[in-house]
Design a binder for these strands. Structure first.
Lengths: 206, 206
DNA sequence: TAGATTGTTAATCGATTAACAATC
DNA sequence: TAGATTGTTAATCGATTAACAATC
């Protein structure tokens, strides 16, 4: 018996719900409603209730949702109730910014290893990390049991790096290189490319 | 008479088509087909043809699409046939990485100004830019006629910065701060938050 | 109790795909 | 001409919304 099939578009909204709820909790809030959450996110209340109902019953009629409880539940659903170690490939400007980024706190991730192929970068200290030689990447990642990686190399190297990462057992890739990457079934990839986001807005501007 | 209403989800795919086509052109290619483009992007050929047909007829039966011609046309549609100046607010690790980023070349954007509120950062050189005092942000952006901005401040400052940017005439915002931002009609916003992307993948991992 | 809000169903709306005539 | 591929239509599929009984 497999896990109930949930549309990926629903899965994609859960992290946004979680982020908003965590911010409410930081603000000392205890209870929220689908309506309030929807207003914050620009999503209809009905959709939030429908999305959550795919995974269980987390609210109380007449009252709403307990913020801490719903946070816990969504963290369990998304498997971020514990931290995932991350390998970063590419110690350029983006890779360095990620290695120093504090924003993964409480989000379920922590950078563990950073790699580069450039002799001048290998051995350098970036934040609390020392840049490792990417030629030993596969073994190092296997050894550490890391399952999630970020690619911050130039586009030309990205597919090759992805192939190696998959060989090393990586199951999820966040790709900052501006190129589409082919991956086998069972591996997941997401893209971050600021130009893509910007172009989506300039369409609406003159 | 207004411009024909195109679904935003279609607009959102055009930048991906453009990026793939530009890469093909770099590789010296002249012609492609909806099938080839679809395979590269993991999208059906029918969808690509349908999307493009919303804007005109760009292909030739039996032959396919001229890569340079289709690039030109999509650039016109997305309004990236010329470069947009960008203001970056926040000169921390992410803002600095963006200021040094070479990836906006040929994508329709160039960083023009970078701001921070921190006295220790103001006046510092980052790449080819000098960090400006964000207290003078509104006038500087108005003066320069900049319409697109990126927010790379901490979450606590993001909404306030967005409000100021809009006052300064900014129409499109790419927000790296991990928080939802409220904007008035006629202003567009996109979000980049690596944790959100990562959580969308860990759902599928054990 | 009265008011509020959930979880869920059915209806609506929109997006994707399959198929094919047109034609290069 | 034969083969290939577009642009478009109609059918299918999936996502969103509206509405409301249940109930806290």
């Amino acid at each position: 018996m497999t896990r109930k099939q949930i549309p990926d578009i629903v899965v994609g909204r859960l992290p946004m719900y979680l982020r908003s709820l965590q911010r409410m909790k930081q603000d000392g809030r205890q209870i929220t409603s689908s309506q309030e959450l929807g207003e914050r996110l620009g999503i209809s209340a009905a959709q939030i209730r429908k999305d959550l109902s795919q995974f269980g019953e987390f609210g109380k009629q007449g009252t709403g949702y307990s913020i801490p409880y719903l946070i816990d539940q969504i963290q369990l659903i998304l498997h971020v109730d514990h931290d995932w170690d991350i390998a970063v490939v590419g110690a350029g400007d983006i890779g360095s910014a990620i290695a120093r980024y504090k924003g993964f706190n409480n989000r379920g991730f922590r950078v563990k290893l950073i790699f580069d192929a450039d002799e001048n970068k290998i051995g350098q200290q970036i934040g609390e990390y020392v840049v490792q030689d990417s030629h030993h990447m596969v073994e190092a990642i296997q050894q550490a049991g890391i399952k999630v990686a970020m690619i911050t190399t130039p586009a030309a190297q990205a597919q090759g790096v992805a192939d190696q990462l998959i060989k090393a057992g990586i199951r999820g890739i966040l790709n900052y290189a501006p190129i589409s990457i082919n991956i086998p079934a069972g591996v997941y990839i997401q893209y971050i490319d600021p130009s893509i986001h910007l172009q989506r807005m300039t369409y609406y501007l003159e």
